[in-house]
Computed example of a mutant assay.
Amino acid sequence: MELRHLRYFAAVADTCHFGQAAQQLHVAQPALSYAIRQLEAELDVTLFTRTTRQVSLTPAGEYLQAEAARILGRVDDAVDGVRRIAAGRSGVIRLGLTGIAAFSHLPRIARMVKRELPDVDLEISSDMLTPAQCDGLRALSIDLGVLRPPVVGDGIDTRLIDVEPMVLAVSVDHRLAMEPVVSVGDLRNEMFVMYDSRDSAVNDATLRTCHRAGFVPQRAHRAPGTAVLLALVAAGMGVAVVPASIRSLPLEGLVVRDLVDAGSVELALAWRTDQDNPVVDAVGDVIAAAFGADVTTGAHPTNDVYLGESR
Rank of each mutant, 00 (worst) to 15 (best):
R115Y: 06
V184C: 10
L137E: 10
R198I: 05
D294H: 11
R74A: 12
L64H: 02
P30M: 08
T273Q: 15
N203D: 14
V295Y: 04
R219W: 04
A177S: 15
R272W: 04
T51W: 03
L106Y: 15
V255Q: 02
E123C: 07
S197T: 14
A132R: 09
C210S: 05
G225A: 07
A101L: 13
D294K: 03
Q133V: 14
A110Y: 03
D261A: 11
S33F: 01
Y195D: 08
R175G: 06
S200N: 09
E179C: 11
P224R: 05
L32V: 08
L187E: 06
S125T: 14
G298Y: 07
R212S: 12
Y306V: 14
E67Y: 05
A262I: 10
E116M: 08
I142Y: 07
I109L: 08
A268I: 08
A10Q: 15
T297W: 02
V233A: 00
F215M: 08
R159G: 06
R175C: 03
L140Y: 09
P149V: 11
D281I: 04
I156H: 08
A68T: 13
T209E: 06
E123D: 12
V182N: 07
L3S: 06
P59Q: 00
L117D: 09
L129W: 05
L57M: 04
P118M: 03
L117Y: 10
V152Y: 10
C134D: 14
R148C: 11
A102Y: 09
F18H: 05
A60T: 09
S248L: 01
R108S: 13
A10C: 06
P224K: 08
V75S: 04
D119Y: 07
H105T: 13
T130C: 14
L43E: 09
M112G: 01
D281L: 06
W271S: 12
V286C: 05
D154C: 04
R138I: 11
Q29Y: 02
A231Q: 09
H221E: 13
V280T: 12
D196C: 08
R89H: 08
A10T: 12
R159Q: 13
P59K: 00
R108V: 11
Q65L: 14
V55N: 01
C134M: 04
Q38G: 05
L249R: 00
G88V: 02
T58M: 02
G145M: 08
S245Q: 12
D154G: 13
D196R: 11
F18Q: 07
A270N: 06
R50S: 04
A290L: 07
I71Y: 12
V256Y: 00
S245R: 15
